[in-house]
Every structure is written in C-alpha cells, then in structure tokens.
C-alpha cells in the first residue's frame, strides 16, 4: 500500500481503521440511528473509503479500496476530506465549543 507520507510499504506496516463515515448529529439523532452508526458497517461490495494508519509514523490517511478485488485504488491525506474545524453547538444553541 502506498502511504501518502511514506510511499509504498508492506501491508504489515499498516492498521485498518474502519470505513470513513460521517457522524450523525448527536443532538437530533434517534437512539436507534446512533446504535446503527456505532455498531454497524455497510460492508458494501465495490470501492469504499477507509481509514488506514501507518503505524511507524502514527499517520492516519484515507484509502479507497475495492472490497471485491482487494485492490487499493488510491490513497490520500485525510485533510483532503476533512478540511474545516468541526464545532459542536452547545445544546440550546450558542455557538462553538471553545
């Protein structure tokens, strides 16, 4: 697998971190949907986006992998997807966390 920071490395240098999924809004989501979010994975056939960690550098990145062929289509830094600071509104609604 090609690590975006370190280049191609043996797969034994990496740890899988689950599918890249958005988190539902904890304030509005139902208990059942939250349980679905934390316990279930889609397990789709085809190209999926996954978190991978290069262990030696503790570097998280994203890989697009075809679950049918196990082919890694591409890898890129997580900052390509997560570009903005995430804030959680205080319940009752008065702006960001800090």
């Amino acid at each position: 697998m090609r690590c975006p920071l370190n280049g191609p490395r043996n797969i034994s240098e990496f740890v899988y971190g689950g599918e890249v999924v958005g988190m539902p809004d904890p304030e509005t989501v139902s208990d059942a949907d939250w349980a679905d979010h934390v316990f279930l994975e889609d397990n789709r056939r085809g190209v999926v986006r996954e978190w991978w960690l290069h262990v030696a550098t503790a570097y998280w990145f994203i890989a697009e992998r075809d679950t049918a062929t196990d082919e890694i289509v591409r890898t890129y830094p997580s900052s390509d997807v997560f570009t903005e600071r995430v804030s959680f509104p205080v319940p009752g609604g008065k702006g960001g966390g800090t």
């Binding site: 971190g17 997580s78 570009t83 995430v86």
Partner: peptide, 20 residues
C-alpha cells in the same frame, strides 16, 4: 489512546498538537 486522539483530530482539525 494516542492513535484514537490522532484519528479524532484528523476529523475535527482542532488547533492542537498531540505528542506521545
């Protein structure tokens, strides 16, 4: 714990450095 912290902040992008 260190990995988990890095993983979360890869998504939150807070202005913080996490060093083991």
């Amino acid at each position: 714990v260190y990995r988990e912290m890095l993983w979360w902040n890869a998504q939150w992008r807070l202005a913080v450095d996490i060093s083991d």
